[in-house]
Write a protein that binds this DNA or RNA. Structure first.
Lengths: 164, 164
DNA sequence: TTATATCCGACTTGATTACTCGGAATAGGC
DNA sequence: GCCTATTCCGAGTAATCAAGTCGGATATAA
C-alpha cells in the first residue's frame, strides 16, 4: 500500500524520456508513448502532460513537428516537483498535508498519531526531493535500449499484491 | 496522494489506545471505539483488529469482560509492523514491493525509475520502523484527554485536497 | 440463562482511478 | 490554401477499490 497511481508512474516515465532527449528536438506524445510502451494510453498521457506544463516543468509547441521539451536541464528538476505536479501535495494522512496546516482536524496537539504521519510525509518528500531527473537518466545509461517496457494489467497488479 | 487508508488510520489509533491501557484490563471494541470517536464504525474495527491479531500484535479474550490487549509492551511494537499488518507490504509502485523481488516487471535493471520508487519505499519503511507505540503514547501524555476526535467525511477529505 | 464479547464470511455501496471520446486550435510542408 | 500532424480541452464512462454493513456463530463471566 501507500501506492503511487498510474499518473505518477507514467508521468515520471514521460519526464525521464524528455530528459534523455534534452537538447534535441521536441518529442511528440506519439514518440514518447511508443518508446515507453504506452502507445495505447496516449490520450491519457495528454492529461498528465497538461499538469506538467501548468507547473512549468515542460514546454510545448503545437502543430506539425511539435511536441514537448523540458523547461529546465534535468539536473535542475527534482523528482518531488514532478510527483507533486501529477499527484498533488504529499499527504499520507489528511492531518499531514504538506504546506497547509489543516483546520479540519481539531485534535491538533491532542493527536498522537500526527507525529507519525508527519514523519512519513517528510520521509517521502525528502526521498523525492533528493533525486533529480539527471540522477535517473544517469542510473540507466549503461544499458540504454535494453529491455522492453511492460504495462501491467490490473490482474497482474492484484497478483503481485498477494505476494505480501 | 500517497495516502494511507482508513484501515491504517483507525488501526493505528486502536493500537495507541491499547498502548495507553497496557497492563490493565482487556479493552473491548466498544470502549476503544468510544474513546476514539469511532463508535459508528465498530464493526469495521472488528475487521482491522483481526489482522492485528493474526500478526500477533494483539491478544484477545472472548465473552463478557473480554476484549483486546497488546501482545508485547509498547516499546517493542514498531509502527511499521502495525501499518504492514493493516495495509500490506509497503509498495509505492508494484516494482518496489518490500521483500518480494517482482518477476512481473521485466524491465529489471533497464528501468531507471525503479531506483526512485525503491528509495521512496525505504524512506517510508524507515520512518515507520523507527517509531514505536511507546513513542506515540509518550508524545501525547501531557495533554491527555484534551480535544475531541473527529471522523472526516469524504466531502471534507476532498475539500482538504483542493488546498494543494 | 442472559448479557456481553469476540469471531467470521459474504455482501453492498460510494468514491476514485484510469481511462475514452469528440472536437477545437495551431503550425509546418506542399 | 489545404492537408496532415500535433497540442489543447472538457466532458463522459467503465472498472476497480475502499469503506462500511449484515447476519449469525461461538465463547465466557455473572
Amino acid at each position: 500500500m501507500l501506492r503511487v497511481s498510474t499518473r505518477g508512474e507514467y508521468g515520471v516515465r514521460l519526464m525521464v524520456d524528455l530528459a534523455r532527449h534534452y537538447g534535441g528536438n521536441a518529442r511528440s506524445l506519439t514518440e514518447i508513448s511508443q518508446a515507453e510502451g504506452l502507445d495505447a494510453k496516449i490520450q491519457y498521457l495528454e492529461q498528465l502532460v497538461k499538469c506538467l506544463r501548468e507547473q512549468r516543468l515542460v514546454e510545448s509547441t503545437r502543430g506539425a513537428h511539435g511536441g514537448y521539451r523540458l523547461a529546465r536541464p534535468p539536473e535542475q528538476v527534482r523528482m518531488g516537483e514532478i510527483v507533486r505536479a501529477l499527484e498533488g501535495q504529499i499527504a499520507p494522512m489528511i492531518c499531514a498535508t504538506e504546506g497547509a496546516m489543516p483546520v479540519i482536524c481539531d485534535r491538533l496537539d491532542g493527536c498522537s498519531t500526527k507525529v507519525l504521519w508527519g514523519r512519513v510525509r517528510d520521509a517521502i518528500s525528502n526521498a523525492l526531493d533528493s533525486m533529480t531527473l539527471a540522477d535517473l537518466v544517469e542510473a540507466n545509461r549503461p544499458i540504454s535500449g535494453a529491455g522492453q517496457f511492460v504495462t501491467l494489467t490490473p490482474r497482474a497488479r492484484r497478483a503481485e499484491r498477494q505476494l505480501s
